[in-house]
Design a protein around this nucleic acid. Sequence first.
DNA 1: CTTGTATTTAACAAAGTTGTTATTTAACAT
DNA 2: ATGTTAAATAACAACTTTGTTAAATACAAG
Lengths: 112, 112
Amino acid sequence: MNLDHTFAALADPTRRAILARLALGEATVGELSAPFPISGPAISRHLRVLEEAALIERQKDGQHRRIRLAPAAMAGAAEWIEAQRAYWSGTLDRLNEHLKKTSQDGGGTTHD
Amino acid sequence: MNLDHTFAALADPTRRAILARLALGEATVGELSAPFPISGPAISRHLRVLEEAALIERQKDGQHRRIRLAPAAMAGAAEWIEAQRAYWSGTLDRLNEHLKKTSQDGGGTTHD
DNA sequence: CTTGTATTTAACAAAGTTGTTATTTAACAT
DNA sequence: ATGTTAAATAACAACTTTGTTAAATACAAG
C-alpha cells in the first residue's frame, strides 16, 4: 500500500482503462490486451505495474492468468485525497469563521 | 483537468507533502521549500508540475509568489476513483445477487 | 544605482518509463 | 514428441523525470 506506486500506476491511461475493464469483472491477459493497439509485452508490463501497486491480483488458471481487481490500494489513494480535502475544507471553514469575526463583508466563498 | 497529469503529480511524495502543507493555508515558494532537503530549483519544478496538473495556483506578490490549492483537479481524481469503486461494487452486488439466486452456500463476499 | 533576496530558467547527468521485437516458459491438443 | 497458444522475460531505443549547479530575472532597500 504505497501511495507513490498507486498514484503512479493510475497516471497511465492504458492502466486506468485496464482497471475500468476489470471493474466490470475479471479477465485474462489476452482479453485485457485485445482493446489496445499495443503489444502483449507492453500490456504485461502494465499489469506488472498494477500488481506492484497492489491494484490487481493474478491467479494462474491453466494456460491463462485470471486478473482481478484488488481494490484496497485504490481505496488507499481515495483516502489520501479525502483526508486532504477534509483538511482543506476545514481550513476554509476556519477562514470563513475568521472573516465573519473580523470583517463585515467577506467570508462568502462557497465550498462543497 | 487531465487525469494523467493529476495522478502523475500525486505520485511524488514531495509533491504530496507540498499539497498537504498547502491544505493548511497558502504559502510562498520559500516557505514550501524549507522543510525539504532538496534545492530551490527542484521545488520550483515540483510546483510547475503541480500547476500544470491544475492542483495549485500561483499569485505574484511582490518578490514572492503566493501558492494556494486549486482543489478542482484533485476532486477530478477522487471522482475517477469513486466512479471506479461504484462500478466495482455494483459488480459485486450483481455477483452476490447472482449467487443468491443460483446456489445455496455462496455469495458471502463482503465489500465496503 | 548597487546589492541582497526570491524565484525561475538553462544545461546537464542519472534513473525510470514505455514501447518495440525476439526469445523463453508453460500448458494444451494432436 | 510436436506444434500451438498464452503469457512473461530480455535486450534495446526513445522519452520523461528528478535532481544538481550556474546563470538570469525581478523586486526591495540602502
